[in-house]
């Protein structure tokens, strides 16, 4: 298996912060804090969208990796600026990289880990360096009037530069366990806007243009699938869960994280979290959490990380990471962490 080294990380959160109290009454605020775990979230400004977020995070990751070019760019997103074209080519051009292969993937909140696995394939064939970006304008896909989704999601982007490992060099990323279940495709879905249903059904107003979430079903599948994928990836790497220093999970909601910790089992205190401040940022969730944890000095060289995510499709993925000495730049933290 081609070794894949993490060379740089970056994350960018739009400056506008929306607190629960800006969106809901005190009772709802209390529930969202306790059970979803969200207190505030970042929100894209008018006119900006996912390509903008992705380019900002990608620029920081390239700076952290001390590179001014990459061979290929993958953008994982559920909220592309437009159905067509993909956003990745525009992100590449904004970085001055017109001409490189660049494409989007949509694996929901599992998108970044799916994209990492694709990057590994590219590094084994056609690329020496790949820029892997998870970016979402998630606030645009939720109906502001729907209390079951509106408070959960936030906007932001995280990016990683990965490169082929040198001969004898440790690979940062280990085996990946991933999968999907299309029989539950409707559990997390935006019914209208695509080729199956171009416009909302008659009499449904614009509800079909927003995310529909079957909460309990999603919760059960999220816990079960993230547990099995994480366990499988760790075993494939020859690790027990006790060997894992930190579990980096998709920040779906606090109750899912609590239930996953109990199900694995894994100590909740070794599960970094930022959902209280950034909300659920879908495909950007894992890279933002990684970039912030690294920039805050929570990740030491040699740490064993287990990354796991679950999302629409349904989709899930997990992979291991042996943390390298890597710089991480976040939008509000100028200095790099050696």
């Amino acid at each position: 298996m081609t070794g894949m080294v993490l060379a740089g990380l970056g994350c960018w959160l739009p400056p506008t912060v929306v607190a629960n109290t800006d969106l809901m009454n005190t009772e709802m605020d209390s529930f969202v804090r306790r059970r979803i775990g969200v207190v505030s979230r970042h929100r894209i400004s008018q006119g900006a969208a996912t390509v903008h977020l992705a380019a900002e995070a990608a620029r920081l990751a390239m700076h952290a990796a001390a590179v001014n070019a990459v061979d290929t760019l993958i953008l994982a997103t559920t909220t592309p600026d437009r159905l067509c074209p993909a956003g990745a080519p525009e992100v590449a051009s904004r970085l001055g990289l017109t001409g490189i292969p660049a494409f989007d993937i949509n694996a929901g909140c599992s998108g970044f880990l799916y994209a990492l696995q694709l990057a590994r394939g590219l590094l084994a064939t056609s690329a020496g360096t790949v820029l892997v970006v998870g970016a979402e304008s998630a606030s645009t896909m939720v109906n502001p009037a729907d209390p079951s989704t509106a408070p959960i999601f936030g906007d932001g982007a995280g990016a990683a530069v990965v490169r082929r490992a040198e001969q004898g060099e440790d690979s940062t990323f280990g085996p990946t366990a991933w999968g999907s279940d299309g029989t539950l495709a409707d559990a997390i879905a935006i019914p209208a806007g695509g080729s199956r249903q171009r416009v909302p059904a008659p009499g449904r107003g614009d509800a079909d243009l927003f995310l529909h979430l079957r909460g309990p079903e999603v919760l059960r599948n999220a816990v079960r699938r993230m547990k099995s994928a994480a366990t499988e990836a760790a075993e494939a790497a020859g690790w027990t869960l006790d060997d894992v220093d930190l579990l980096i999970t998709h920040q779906a909601n606090a109750t899912i994280s609590t239930a996953l910790a109990a199900a694995l089992p894994f100590p909740r205190e070794r599960m970094p979290s930022n959902i209280h401040r950034v909300g659920n940022t879908a495909a950007a969730s894992v890279p933002i959490l990684l970039a912030e944890a690294a920039a805050q000095g929570l990740l030491a060289q040699g740490n064993r990380l287990l990354l796991t995510a679950f999302g629409s499709g349904l989709s899930w993925a997990a992979t291991t990471a042996l943390w390298p000495c890597v710089a991480s730049l976040t939008a509000y933290q100028k200095e790099t962490t050696p």
Binding site: R35, G215, E217, L219, V223, N253, T255, A263
Partner: peptide, 15 residues
């Protein structure tokens, strides 16, 4: 006991 807690309980009873 909200829908999430009920979902966790149902999941653990099953699993």
């Amino acid at each position: 006991v909200d829908s999430m807690a009920a979902a966790v309980l149902a999941m653990i009873l099953e699993d």
